[in-house]
Amino acid sequence: MAKKKLRVVIFALIPVLVLVLLAFRAFEHSAAYYYTISEAKELQAEAQKLRIKGQVVKDSVHYDPSIPLLEFALADQAAQIDVIYGGVLPDNFHHAQEVIVEGKFTSGGEFMVSKLMLQCPSKYEGEE
């Protein structure tokens, strides 16, 4: 009985190990760190994938639907960067105060967004 149990455990461990290996491999491509804008600016030179949370600066938003290209400035308490996004302007963009952007800095120093995340419309009101 004990021998049988051991065999089951060993057989169960194989897929778990495979899974852990898979997870590690996937991790290398998919992990994104959250940075503050000032931290991100310091890392500007090393073209790595960054994820930044910030506020859209009012009146900085410019959208050209013919390309499409969305440009805006992203700021937190300490710093500000220019952001460009080559996608369709999401409906709730003007509504969102806080956005999360994922992407890389271009050689020109602008932050090129590959993924733009906004608050969901079903956003639940915060507690006081």
């Binding site: 495979v18 899974l19 898979l22 997870a23 491999r25 996937a26 991790f27 491509h29 998919s30 992990a31 994104a32 760190y33 959250y34 994820r51 994922e102 993924k115």
Partner: peptide, 18 residues
Amino acid sequence: GREIVLDEGFFNQVTVPL
């Protein structure tokens, strides 16, 4: 001490083989 977020790629690569 740092938030690391995993994107869709991670979930797809890990769950599809399961």
